[in-house]
Nucleic acid binder design. Structure first.
Lengths: 358, 358
DNA sequence: TTCAGCATATGAAAGCACTTAACAGAAATA
DNA sequence: TATTTCTGTTAAGTGCTTTCATATGCTGAA
């Protein structure tokens, strides 16, 4: 930490009796510089322990080769994976990524956007905080640099975005449960009016409708969808006159809470109640039984977001319309929903289906 | 993205008929500037939509207020949490964090360090890649700026570091198993000669010794400690003449693999075989039974690392000796190891203990 | 042979936007 | 009147890029 190397292109220049501009060009592999000089410059640079100063370069040509990414928190699996995906791409083309956490706090988010603008990042990739309702900070950002939103977005901003098709996820997994013979499918959703949950719910209802199963409001339970909420919601369902034969929770945590309660009550999964979540949290493959869920393709989401972002960055001021990329989620079928597999062994259970069908 | 605001302190200055230096001082709240001028400057700045240019400031006084963090991958729970912990602290004092992934690849790591040096970060916090054996890139970094290593460190570098006490973790959890009545405790460890695993193993053997239990090499199984390895290792143990009554895996994944095999064989956990892991991965609380494990305090590790780091950063060139902070891990006791709870109900099992004790 | 014309290789200098040491004028204090 | 205090200005500098200019050597037409 002592001898902060102060070697600049001028040092290289004077060592070689040339000017700094030549050194700069040589280092940037400018075709106007002869191979001999380039070689000499590179050699001298190495000898002197020269380390380019990106800050000076950034100041000079107005690009920092740094982008900012804003996530609610960096340690939630989903966001961590997206960050990974973004960094992967950015790194490949010589960009660095500044990571910022909004903690779902509006003021923090606003400050963060400003801090990134001041840091002169070349662009921002963000997932909006839960409580954000005013988007003027993003609008401000958008006036100055490329902005791209992922996962949690808004239609109040004309901005490119990458999201997954929550409707499709909800639809496909509900359909899967129906195919497994379930007819009374409960759904855990969020009490918050967040679009991703609304879409999952819509997928659920639509799938029911398409398969001629009546929608029953009593089977839709609202909560915050954490583990504890999942327990509470499941207990509420158990008090109904007629038990559901499946639960599709819009969050894996909710599904795990339900699983715990069911196991405590010795209700068999999936024979009596099939279970499905949403998100493909790492723990879902370790639960007993492993949980059927919807994969969010989080790393790809980061990749795709970064690719789309850099496309726009390169396009520069050339008008490019905001682009919306919708990723198709994949359903991960695991044991918790495979009711069919047990149907043969389980006469009683099967009769249950039949009577319901009648 | 169109009207890149080009407002500089000069624009503010000329609007107010003062000089840029006065504006600069006013914005930096320099006491030499009168309150009236400050107010006027702030007002004008807001009117003109002024956004400070940190890059110019950084170039001028040689500090970017950005630090770099290098992790093998950003989406592993542990590293994601540390990143979160670091950003938390950094953010509070006006620093931003550039996140870089080495993917455990030596060349990538070297390039990353250089890129960060060129980006003129004010310091680097890093966890060393698995395959790194030459540390000259870190040595080079260390000559120019504060460096701090966490979790995966090396004693080949005189550098501050934050680690957890793996020995203690291994010791405590083995002791816990002993207290639960286990006498034949198996251990899953890594075949790689990584210090964290060596330490956990040492904790295990030491605890055995202190409790008068003979060490049995046959009970120590080496592998890569992933889920599949855990399965293989467990199956190997099952072939022994005498079954172990507990398994302490130095990774949660290994423990989960073991859990799967045991459940498939209808071997009761913890009654017949108690189970413990290491890391407190999120899935451990969702397994059935929930897994006893050692918590790595990952967010605190990030916090502590950042605090120590910024302390050194502030100390600047004033000689400060490399400091080594060792965090005490906490053991998280869950059902998978609570053999005692079953001992009363389970006469047979208890007699098993007694015969062993004899 | 001569020289315009051109390509090639490099230099000089002007910033990029900000900070800060050194300086200066006016008012206030001694 | 001399000195300090307050407020502000001047100008140099941070390391790099890039426009414009220059020097050199070569080709080919006059």
């Amino acid at each position: 930490m002592a001898g902060k190397s102060k070697t600049t292109i001028h040092d290289i220049a004077s060592k070689l009796n040339i000017t700094a501009s030549t050194v700069s060009r040589a280092l940037n592999n400018n075709p106007r510089i002869s191979e001999t000089t380039k070689k000499a410059v590179q050699k001298a640079a190495k000898q002197l322990g020269y380390q380019p100063n990106n800050i000076a370069a950034a100041l000079r040509h107005g690009r920092s080769h740094i982008i900012g990414i804003i996530v609610p928190t960096a340690d939630r699996t989903f966001f961590a994976s997206v960050v990974r995906g973004v960094e992967e791409i950015a790194n490949k083309i010589g960009y660095k990524v500044i990571i910022c956490q909004s903690y779902d706090n509006y003021n923090t988010e606003v400050q963060t956007v400003d801090a990134l603008l001041s840091a002169r990042v070349d662009g921002i990739i963000a997932s909006i905080g839960k409580n954000t309702e005013d988007f003027s900070h993003y609008k401000r950002a958008q006036e100055k640099l490329p902005l791209l939103l992922f996962d949690r977005t808004t239609d109040k901003l004309e901005v490119s975005q990458v999201v997954i098709d929550d409707f499709l996820g909800g639809y496909k997994i509900t359909e899967h449960l129906i195919e497994q013979g379930c007819r009374r499918i409960a759904h855990f959703t969020s009490s918050k009016k967040v679009s991703i949950y609304k879409e999952r719910l819509r997928g659920y209802t639509e799938a029911l409708k398409d398969h001629g199963i009546p929608f029953d409001q009593a089977l839709v339970v609202e909560s915050n969808m954490q583990l504890e909420d999942g327990r509470t919601s499941m207990e509420a369902l158990l008090k109904l006159d007629q038990l559901p034969d499946a639960v599709f929770s819009a969050s894996d945590y909710g599904a795990m809470g339900a699983m715990q309660v069911l196991k405590e009550r010795k209700i068999r999964i999936p024979q009596e109640v099939a279970l499905a979540g949403f998100m493909n949290e790492p723990f879902t493959s370790f639960s007993d039984p492993p949980l059927t869920t919807v994969d969010q393709l989080s790393i790809s989401m980061g990749n795709v977001a970064a690719e789309l972002f850099f496309e726009q960055l390169k396009a520069g001021d050339k008008k490019h319309l905001p682009q919306r990329t919708v990723l198709k989620p994949e359903i991960i079928i695991r044991q918790s929903s495979l009711k069919r597999d047990y149907a043969k062994d389980d006469k009683e259970q099967q009769e249950g289906y039949i009577s319901l069908k009648a």
